[in-house]
Write a protein that binds this DNA or RNA. Structure first.
Lengths: 332, 332
DNA sequence: TTGAAAGCGCTAACAT
DNA sequence: ATGTTAGCGCTTTCAA
């Protein structure tokens, strides 16, 4: 900026004025300064502006895995909303490892971002509150705020679980299994609990639960499916923690000669983009993924205004019936 | 930092020493300072460090759409490598709009990041060179550097197109179509050109080309498929610009009663994670997606060292034969 | 309409 | 082993 000033034959504060308050600068002077900026390839320094106390244009987004289509969509929703505000997304993945989450949180905090949107592993909630208290706004995504004084946007997963259960029960299924993952996370636990409530409320046999290994997307379901099939009284319906697992389960089942939905019904969760395009198309519980991201970004941006009050938004999920569910073969 | 110094009864530079050069501080003093930091909830200011000329921990990643599974994977590869270096990814999507790309580039440059990894729309290559010249390292991803003095990591898409063509030709197909998108981009053009070379080299009839509308993932193939099917002499094989389109094409075909691969063969490109898990599993051209991201991040990080010379890395793609290709029904 | 100067939080060279 | 100080690039009073 000093160079620009020199080249244009003005002082730095005049350059500052053409940048921040052009109306106050004489047209001739302004033009001269603008030429100097162009010829020197001048680029404002974000860090210097932040140091002066201006709002940062960076926002952290901490998800479990940005390669997972659900979080990729979420990040896109966040990005779209932030883009309108001239902000940029720092996309981070925790792999559900609390230590990694903590490390990322620290690193993010050091950048003094406008705020951080986080899908928590569940282990570091107190730390998140601390980050917020220190001055970096935090909004929880796909989590309930509990007694924390933070903004949160979530989904009623209990209702989602119930929706899945009621659909299957309505079809005549009684023997139902839930596929969860080796590492538990609150949103999945809530789905399980809603599903279990529906099942036991209908007087059906207790819900089966199997866990799949963590790993690459789509992997880890083989053993779980084998275990289920080896049961004396195998389930006629399997609801999966998410669409990715559901697609893998359908494949694993068909590879073993079990027809879907003829022999067993399968449900996913999320309704990620490809869920409608696999064969057979997935019956699933939808949540408005991009919208969730957009709203979280909105909340984050709103933390800037002085009158801001923290709030929690809960979205209801929907049942989307497609081709992986049908009545059970026999009466069981 | 001044507060910490005061609370610990030392000077700021002692605080700086426990931060950057702990060995030089007396254990007792160090402990006192560390306590002060903890009790005050001290967090280093990244912006201030950058202003002092220390390397930034931010790296921009500009892709066409971070919600697209291919770019989501790519970003994950970048993130994984950067994570080891203590850096964070700024994930941006251009939607193949040159103006948006330009806007994002400017915004990124203002943050004075360690560098920018970009999958270019193709319109702003000169600008990218300018960014680099101004001091922000740029590495091109999924693009050739041409005469630009930049690092680049790419894939030999001509070879990929040829691989697809040879596979289909080997199966006995003669009448082949390529599905591209309304907005053209260099990597797709290269695939087309490789495919065309294979087709004409085999003396088969000229390659058909249809374009699909841009829009949401998985949408826009309906009209293209209809157009192809309405032809006097419809193709017996369709190669798609990517796996997402291929999945949608398979669906569109089957919805019209056309069996895949019985009636027509379909190929994708990329081998994104779900390609192996759709039904029928997709025959496609694989490229090492995460690896591409990791290598790009490596190259970017390497720009820091003084002896660095720009380089271009080209990865060869592979043919992955699965279940969407088969010999044509008749001899055509 | 333009300029001078202080200071944001930090680091590094130097002095003690 | 610890302290003093200048300065990174910018914004923002305040003065001219």
């Amino acid at each position: 900026m000093r160079d620009v000033a020199q080249t244009a034959g003005v002082s730095v504060s005049t350059v500052a004025n053409v940048l921040n308050n052009p109306a106050v600068v004489a047209p001739a002077t302004r033009e001269r300064v603008e030429e100097a900026m162009a010829s020197l390839g001048f680029v404002r320094s974000g860090p210097a502006r932040q140091l002066r106390g201006l709002p940062s244009r960076l926002v952290g987004s901490v998800t479990l895995d940005q390669a997972n289509p659900f979080y990729a969509e979420l990040n896109r929703g966040i990005e779209d909303r932030l883009d309108e505000a001239g902000c940029l997304v720092l996309a981070c993945s925790t792999d559900i490892e609390p230590e990694k989450e903590l490390r990322i949180l620290r690193l993010l905090e050091e950048q003094s971002p406008r705020g951080i949107i986080v899908t928590p592993t569940g282990e570091n909630l107190a730390e998140l509150a601390a980050v917020s208290r220190r001055g970096t706004p935090v909004v929880l995504l796909d989590a309930t705020r509990g007694d924390l004084d933070l903004c949160a946007v979530g989904v009623d997963h209990e209702a989602g679980g119930r929706l899945a259960g009621d659909h299957l029960l309505g079809l005549g299924h009684r023997r139902i299994a839930f596929l969860s993952a080796a590492r538990d996370v609150a949103p999945v636990r809530a789905r399980l609990s809603g599903l279990r409530a529906a099942v036991s409320g209908a007087g059906a046999p207790p819900l089966l639960e199997v866990r799949m290994a963590l790993g690459d997307l789509f992997s880890g379901t083989e053993e779980a499916v084998s275990a289920l099939l080896a049961l004396d009284d195998p389930p006629s319906a399997i609801v999966c923690l998410n669409d990715i697992a559901a697609v893998a389960v359908v494949r694993a089942l068909e590879r073993r000669g079990v027809r879907v939905p003829g022999d067993v019904s399968v449900m996913g969760y999320d309704d990620v983009p490809f869920a409608a395009h696999v064969q057979p198309a997935l019956t699933t519980i939808r949540r408005p993924i991009r919208e969730l991201g957009r709203v979280a970004a909105d909340l984050l941006l709103a933390e800037g205004v002085p009158t801001h009050r923290h709030q929690e938004l809960i979205f209801p999920p929907d049942l989307v019936v497609r081709a992986t569910t049908a009545p059970p073969r026999d009466g069981s």
